[in-house]
Design a protein around this nucleic acid. Structure first.
Length: 675
DNA sequence: CACTCCGGGATTTTT
DNA sequence: TCCCGGAGTG
């Protein structure tokens, strides 16, 4: 089984004497190491599947890993094996230990638009900018494991102090709703384990071995959780690549990699440097660019896949010309090499950059898919339905109550809700509970009261059914009762209504299937299903329409993917590196390095050919702006590059800049080591 | 006073 | 593309 691995990979799989960090370069087979190690632990080392947890960041990664392990373990069961995202593992723990934190096990999970609305209430404002900022601030605090009290103490300016107060009220509100937000799914388990060592001991006993994917993306809170679960013996394998850390801006801290060496003095480090993806030239480019960043661990990718084509760097007049040139080149290349559309990717820094490209692709009838887009759960029709489910599971979930009570309209209007809200907050109870209070009922007109009670009583009725009857039946009853299909056709264009209704049916169909236990697990009723849906990935990864299409993607969203031929566009100062990062780097160095890693991620997506382009001019804020080629272009190995149309940056200038920066970095590292 | 329509502008995203 | 803000209309 292990003979298909190269020697460091094999070593990584077999190493069990202590904590292990696998530094896996791009395309070096890190997923293979994780999946093989899971199989090895079960088949060769006598671990039970339920004693192992593999943790990823995205549902997609978890699903892929699940599939691969499933195939390899055919004979033996994978029952009980945990392959989950940080968030769903956190959820699992919270559901089981909810009582210890004063939550009921059916607590709700709020999405970011719910929490946005709560903040709008707390701050009594509609200023979206301020709300977004506050939301971001609170999220950052949670990711750094900072409580409202600590946040208040830390706040150095008035604005942050105000935000800390909002944070506190926000947190109290969530508790009252018996709800948690996404960040809480990681933060609360850590709190739980700090306050209840016996609960921690229980989970440490249960999970005997941990494997963590994309370790460089962990934030402080996630690292804390890992450290707690693996205990002092450090029974874990962390796999990551510091050169691909591109999520610093959302709390991921590469520092966690260094911290690992400090926290676990016995930490073993294995590097995977053989790349199975790209040509020598592409790897030379990647290595040389990233060599400009300070390194904690030296790492150099190599491959035996041949020298390959020269890397092309083209200058375009402006973004329109660039788009045209890229699409032309792509089409010619495809014709010449008899490749498929899906062998090509066009990568860029910001979503909006896709616009011109899309235009060109449409003009030339080239099929394409754009990465990202809103998730299934963000669709209004799904949120409507989910709000009913959330309310059924947890009648204290006020955001769900408001949405369900008002969509479709059922005679419960704003005034009723306002009065209900006033009464509820005065008496510190949920909206649902308030509706049944005699004192409140006397305040309300007969008509309004009747409609309100109809709704609440129906929820009560369906709550009982949800526990007993099959999920499918209950859902059908629900949709019939609220007349959701009629509602859609009343409020939408027929076309839109049709797709929305189809989405609803897709969703319920899929939910019911889950309820019947498609992986031969025990049957689940609607309540149990409801408790997991907000974290389930569905229809995700299923690209709509054309399976053979050119991929358009941001550099961030392209991490983990590979393509035969890659076009990297808009490689200019101000875009890559992004203007904001350049500015931020002046105050607090480090941002440019993250931009460089972004460039590195882009380069290493390519297997056979790499085309880089930049614009000499670009429209911005109504004016035409003169653009400089990105400093990263000068960092490429010029022997492997062929330039088209105009000079790139003067290598000498950029070299000077690089040297200067390296000196700074060395000084910085030196200080760190001393301190 | 509120709603709609149009034009301009844009980091990066998951759960 | 999507979102926001300003102008123009009922």
């Amino acid at each position: 089984m292990l003979d298909t691995l190269n020697s460091p990979q094999r070593e990584a799989v077999k190493y069990l004497d202590g904590p292990l960090l696998v530094l896996a370069g791009a395309g070096s087979g890190k997923t293979r190491v994780i999946t093989q190690k899971i199989v090895y632990l079960i088949e060769k080392c006598g671990y039970l599947p339920k004693e192992i947890a593999a943790i990823t960041f995205t549902n997609k990664a978890a699903r892929e890993m699940q599939e691969r392990v499933g195939k390899m373990l055919e004979s033996k069961s994978t029952k009980g094996l945990t392959i989950a995202t940080f968030h769903s593992l956190g959820l699992q723990m919270l559901r089981q230990e909810a009582a210890l934190l004063g939550y009921k096990p059916q607590f709700s999970i709020l999405d970011s638009s719910d929490s946005f609305k709560i903040l709008a209430d707390v701050l009594a404002t509609t200023d979206k900018q301020l709300l977004r900022k506050t939301q971001w601030q609170i999220s950052s605090w949670k990711n750094a494991f900072i409580n409202p009290d600590q946040a208040k103490q830390l706040a150095d300016e008035e604005l942050t102090h105000a935000a800390a107060k909002v944070y506190q009220i926000y947190q109290q509100t969530l508790k009252a709703y018996q709800a948690v937000d996404f960040d809480d799914l990681i933060k609360l388990p850590v709190e739980l384990f700090e306050q209840h060592p016996e609960a921690l001991a229980k989970w440490q006993r249960k999970l005997k071995y941990l494997l963590i994917d994309e370790y460089q993306d962990t934030n402080a809170c996630q690292y804390k959780l890992v450290k707690m679960l693996t205990g002092i013996e450090g029974r874990f394998t962390a796999v990551g690549d510091d050169d691909q850390a591109i999520y610093g801006w959302r709390g991921a801290d590469v520092e966690n990699l260094r911290q690992l060496t400090e926290d676990f003095s016995r930490l073993k480090v294995i590097k995977l440097e053989q790349n199975y993806r790209s040509t020598v030239r592409i790897l030379r480019a990647a290595n040389q660019v990233i060599a400009n960043n300070p390194k904690l661990f030296e790492k150099k990718l190599w491959s035996d896949l041949g020298t390959g084509d020269l890397i092309q760097v083209s200058a375009a007049r402006d973004e329109e010309h660039e788009a045209e040139a890229v699409v032309m080149k792509l089409m010619a290349h495809k014709f010449e090499h008899r490749t498929k559309h899906l062998d090509y990717a066009i990568l860029y820094r910001g979503n909006y950059q896709a616009r011109v490209i899309e235009q060109q692709l449409r003009n030339h009838k080239v099929p394409y898919t754009v990465s990202g887009g809103q998730s299934f759960f963000d669709k209004a029709e799904i949120k409507d339905l989910v709000s009913y489910l959330r309310l059924i599971a947890n009648e204290d979930d006020d955001p769900a109550f408001i949405r369900a009570a008002t969509t479709p309209k059922k005679g419960i209007g704003n005034t009723t809700l306002e009065r209900l809200g006033e009464y509820a907050s005065l008496h510190k109870i949920s909206l649902f509970a308030a509706a049944f209070e005699g004192e409140f009922q006397r305040e309300l007109g007969n008509r309004q009261l009747e409609d309100l009670l109809n709704f609440c009583q129906y929820i009560n009725k369906i709550q009982e059914r949800a526990e007993r009857d099959p999920a499918g039946e209950v859902l059908t009853d629900l949709l019939n009762t609220i007349q959701y299909e009629v509602f859609l056709y009343d409020s939408e264009e027929p076309r839109a209504a049709e797709t929305k209704w189809k989405n609803v049916l897709d969703f319920t169909g899929w939910l019911t299937k889950k309820g019947e236990g498609d992986d031969a697990n025990e049957e689940r009723n609607l309540l149990q299903l409801t408790q997991m849906i907000s974290l389930m990935s569905m229809l995700e990864g299923r690209e709509n329409g054309e399976p053979d299409a050119v991929k358009l993607s941001t550099l961030h969203a392209a991490k983990g993917l590979e393509f035969g031929h890659v076009f990297l566009i808009g490689v200019e100062e101000g875009i890559l590196p992004h203007r904001e990062s350049v500015e931020a780097d002046k105050l607090k160095p480090g941002k440019i390095e993250e931009e460089r890693r972004l460039m590195y991620v882009g380069i290493t997506r390519a297997q056979k050919s790499l085309n880089i382009s930049w614009c000499k001019k670009r429209k911005r804020a109504g004016e035409t702006e003169i653009c400089e080629p990105s400093r990263f272009l000068a960092e490429l190995p010029q022997d492997d590059v062929r330039h088209f149309g105009g000079p790139a940056a003067d290598p000498a200038t950029s070299k000077e800049h690089g040297k200067e920066r390296m000196a700074q970095i060395r000084a910085m590292l030196g200080n760190q080591n001393k301190g």
